[in-house]
Design a protein around this nucleic acid. Structure first.
Lengths: 324, 324
DNA sequence: ATGAAAGCGCTAACAA
DNA sequence: TTGTTAGCGCTTTCAT
């Protein structure tokens, strides 16, 4: 339309070569008039670069992941990368199929949280595909993968020690399904470490689904026992909130009757009454770091890195001494 | 590698034509051994279909958007579509550039929430590009765009009427920046409708940024006046939560000293103490519907539709009679 | 400063 | 049942 070759248009659009002022003017005019848009697909095919990264999280309904994705997306935008998003709903099958899709779409890298690093079919595909990725939230196990996380076990240990120090002896753990979360497993280990440290062998663990809004059934079951727990350690803040609701429904007051502790440090925990005692993961920064590191690995072929951030215990009102 | 032509491989991989059992077996074997992955880019270029939709929201930090994106993503996955995600941070410039990127990536449709439909450069690009899109949360104005929303003005009117009915006469509105949200404008109109309906002409509107976690300054200013408000109407739940915090910081109790009402119906509002009085938008379903309708428009060229869902008022503890 | 042409990986006629 | 081939839109040498 501009009476020039496609090569010249390419050079004009990308500024990738010399174009005379006059031809550039003509091309600009024609582009505006015709509504021409360079087709990224063609460019991607030719250059073998997509400037796209894949992001896979279990669910956006948990603010810990929404915040992380927010951090990732902002960093990506800054660096000129596009974000393909998928959620797994904590299902390993959906993890694998999402990763397959990403790989076929030729994403240049991934940031993801999987159910369990060790059992992940998705991660095997990824490593054999040889494309860089960063695990987010998943604990470090195989140090040949880049990861960003906190020490879940230690944080859980410290949290439960606090509970024990206040005098709690019957502490139940409401754990997200172990098969769906290696974080949950680590936190459970920390819980047991703490009990053992205090010479207590009454472990009381109830697994619940992560998508479960209502844990009344499980809580009721625990409270019908002869010696109900005086405190609950929950493997996420979202589960802690559900636990508090369930307790309230059966007439238990938190924290006077029973204490509840969460994990994650989602910001709403602070505004609740009682505010949540929890361990804070800086989700948004973790997302940002993951993205930045991923881009380093893509562009500069930087080596794998395992970043374990210090966690932070947040004292809330939901944990007090046990009733006498 | 399998000793067959690319055409045969294509047929085998896609099941798009006859392939003998033996050749299929060979191809499968070679694919597994070599780690071959069909390149979507090539296919996309050839077929001129990307099976990708763009999603643009202001921010994932507000659960109303995170929930909506969650709904969109699930629906997309069900229908075999990929999701390219971007956030605008309530900036119209970033809206436009995200839409440009989407368009160049040849997304087949978009679901988006823009600052203001009427002033949106992004929407002009979109409509002239002739690709289907669905506005989410934005009120219906130009009915030639598909939209899914509630009647913001009416909901705000009803909410503020409730406040007036309880006896409040000095009601301030803490509004998200009008330039960043046409919802905020509509809700403000509903607020004024209600005041007018009760013959009150003391409108008291303070604009705040959406990303603003801390509204202490604005709240303090209002409370240093001779007759401070007895109630606050906030244009979102997130702002309402910030308002409650600011009030608490200056020693005001909600709701005994002052009432606060939000808008959106994010689920945490229910677990707060006091629980939030608000108007509920069913974000996840809105996302699902948006995605489903978008795909109808893509596949079957269904006409534009404007769906205005009934809103629902949620009675919470944050609204009571004004102190005597 | 510009153009011609090859080729990225794929699909879809068409031919055999 | 399989192969040959053109071409999707782009970038990039290599000529001119």
């Amino acid at each position: 339309m501009a009476g020039v070759s496609v090569a010249t248009v390419s050079r004009a659009v990308n500024g990738s070569g010399p174009v005379s002022l006059e031809t550039r003017a003509i091309i600009d005019r024609v582009i505006n008039e015709s509504g021409f848009r360079p087709n990224s697909i063609g460019r991607q095919l030719k250059t073998a670069r997509t400037h796209t990264i894949g992001v896979l999280v279990p669910s956006l309904k948990n603010p810990i992941f929404a915040d992380a994705v927010n951090g990732i997306e902002c960093a990506a935008q800054n660096k000129g990368y596009n974000v393909l998003l998928a959620s797994s709903g904590y299902s390993t099958d959906r993890e694998s199929s999402a990763v397959d899709t990403f790989l076929n779409s030729r994403v240049e890298g991934l940031v993801l949280t999987v159910a369990d690093e060790e059992k992940s079919q998705a991660l095997s595909s990824l490593s054999s595909a040889g494309i860089p990725f960063v695990l987010m939230f998943n604990p470090v196990k195989n140090s040949s993968y880049s990861t960003i996380s906190i020490d879940n076990r230690k944080a859980a240990f410290e949290l439960v020690c606090q509970m024990l120090k206040l005098g709690h002896r019957r502490i139940a753990m409401i754990a997200g399904k172990f098969s769906e979360s290696d974080r949950s497993i680590e936190r459970q280990a920390g819980y047991q470490d703490a009990l053992r440290h205090y010479g207590i062998d009454q472990v009381l663990i109830t697994e619940v689904g992560f998508e479960n809004q209502d844990v009344s059934e499980q809580i009721n079951a625990l409270h019908e026992a002869k010696n109900p727990p005086t405190a609950y350690f929950c493997s996420t803040d979202v589960i802690a909130i559900a636990t508090i609701r369930a307790l309230t429904q059966i007439g238990k007051n938190v924290p006077t009757d029973v204490s509840v502790v969460g994990f994650d440090g989602i910001s709403v925990g602070e505004w609740l009454t009682p505010s949540l005692t929890t361990a804070v993961q800086p989700a948004e920064q973790m997302g940002e770091w993951a993205m930045q590191h991923l881009i380093e690995r893509i562009d500069e072929d930087v080596p794998v890195k395992n970043l374990v951030l210090p966690h932070q215990l947040r004292q809330g009102e939901s944990l007090v001494n046990p009733p006498i």
